[in-house]
Amino acid sequence: MKLSSSKGAKTLALFTLVAVVAACGLPRSGPNKREIFAGSVLNGGDAFVVTVNPRVTRATSVMPAYGFSDAFRNAGKVGPDTIVPGDVLTLTIFENVKDDPLLGNTGQRVSQLAELQVDGQGYIFVPYAGKIKAAGQSPDGLRQIITKKLDTQTPDPQITVNRLAGDGQTVSLAGAVGGQGVYPIERSTRTLSTMIAKAGGIAIEPAVAIVRVTRGNQTGKVWLQDLFENPALDIALRGGDQIVVERDQRAFTALGATGAQSLVPFESQTLSAIEAIAQVGGLSTQLADPTGVFVLRNEPAAVANAVLGRKDLKGDQRMVYVLDLTAPTGMFEARDFLVRDGDTLYVTEAPFTQWSKTISAITGTAGAANSLANVGSSSGS
């Protein structure tokens, strides 16, 4: 009878100790499933807790759309021979006279005017022909203009015009390219993709490369992969364009029972929940609860209304999307659900984890107490 009472007392003491230790608040990586659901609007909280299904996935599949405006896309290619301010020209003039040529010395029938730069207003100065508007002309068109002006002063002048790219017909490339610098627009580099190739290509992973083009007060940007896959995005360049190749700056935060807890950059244009989990090393096999995978975000009102089947929500809404990887279609839902910039991916700990921590704390405390008792006994003897 006494033995039975002793065992009952020990059992009661054990459960009491478990309760006390649990109440003290054992270390953990964050809230559990029950606490997250307690924050639901249905329970008086301020977040909508939604289980992910195909309808929710479709409503939330909103990704940033990059592209160029009509002003960029409708601009035709610059003619390789079109003269613009900043270009440098060389004129060679053949005069049909033996003595006393108009431009050269006596007996010199060929004269060359080298490195004539077209000024900001588009003009050049040619001796005996005066100030001539060169911008907008082709070399052949300018040749005809100069010939007409000199024809009355020297018999049957023969003129050639050679154009070299100058400051007005160049673009700048910066960022993650093979060779940053200023490049002339030439016959082989009149489009965005060919100019990037001229600069040595890109120096980062193509999947996360974004190309930004600034022209005057307008800016457009595209994914590098889209640029090569869609010819309509390969815009014609203009002198003065600024081209920057940069890495995608989007990222999500991984917390809880995952392989890594950190701010994680995107590694592709689109990122599913299952890919995000894999990117941080998967779920912790020692801690994670696969029924408690959450994605937290502030959702625009339009998307939130679509997800919840409502029309009355205004402004951004706090949304908690729930993924149960153990459900029959759980892995498929995680594969199809897209993670977005600024999302928080949180994985709860399994209930058994807290029990294990409690037992470890109890056994550790009991062991420490026994050690102290043994030390006390040794000192007393």
Rank of each mutant, 00 (worst) to 15 (best):
L338W: 02
T326Y: 11
G181H: 09
T348S: 03
L150P: 10
V307I: 15
F266Q: 07
G367F: 01
D87C: 08
L287F: 01
A236N: 15
Q218S: 04
G181A: 11
G107A: 03
V264I: 14
V177A: 03
G259H: 05
N43T: 05
E115S: 08
T344I: 10
A278I: 02
L233I: 09
P64W: 02
A209W: 09
T291G: 09
L283M: 14
P27R: 12
P231G: 09
P351F: 15
A260N: 00
E246K: 03
I196N: 03
D312V: 08
A350P: 05
N298C: 00
E186A: 09
S378A: 15
D241V: 00
L227G: 04
T326G: 13
K314N: 15
A301E: 12
V264S: 09
T170V: 05
A301C: 02
L42P: 03
V18Y: 15
I243T: 04
G367A: 10
L142E: 13
A19N: 13
T154H: 00
G104H: 09
D234W: 12
P64L: 10
V56F: 10
V49N: 13
R143A: 11
V295H: 05
Q144K: 15
A369S: 13
Q169C: 03
Q261E: 15
T106D: 14
D234G: 08
A276V: 00
V339Y: 02
P265S: 02
D156H: 14
E205H: 03
N162H: 06
Y321C: 00
V177D: 00
V208A: 06
N230V: 12
V295E: 02
E333M: 07
R190N: 12
S193P: 00
T363R: 12
S377G: 10
N374L: 03
L164R: 05
A135K: 13
S262G: 04
T16N: 09
K198C: 04
V375E: 10
G120H: 10
I83M: 04
V182M: 03
G30V: 02
S360F: 11
L237N: 13
G107M: 00
A129F: 07
T214L: 12
M1C: 01
N74V: 01
G380M: 10
G179K: 07
P231Y: 00
G367P: 02
A260C: 00
L192D: 02
Q153R: 15
Q279G: 01
V171N: 07
M1G: 06
Q354K: 15
I243D: 06
G136Q: 06
G175C: 08
A366R: 01
Q153W: 10
V18W: 08
T154Q: 00
Q279T: 03
Q169V: 07
I235Y: 11
A71I: 13
D341P: 02
D316P: 06
T82A: 03
N305E: 11
E349M: 06
D87S: 03
I210T: 10
Q137P: 10
S377I: 10
F15H: 03
V84Q: 08
F352D: 01
I36Q: 04
Q354C: 07
D336S: 03
G380Q: 04
M195F: 09
I36P: 05
D151S: 06
R297K: 08
K311H: 01
G367S: 05
L173A: 02
S360G: 13
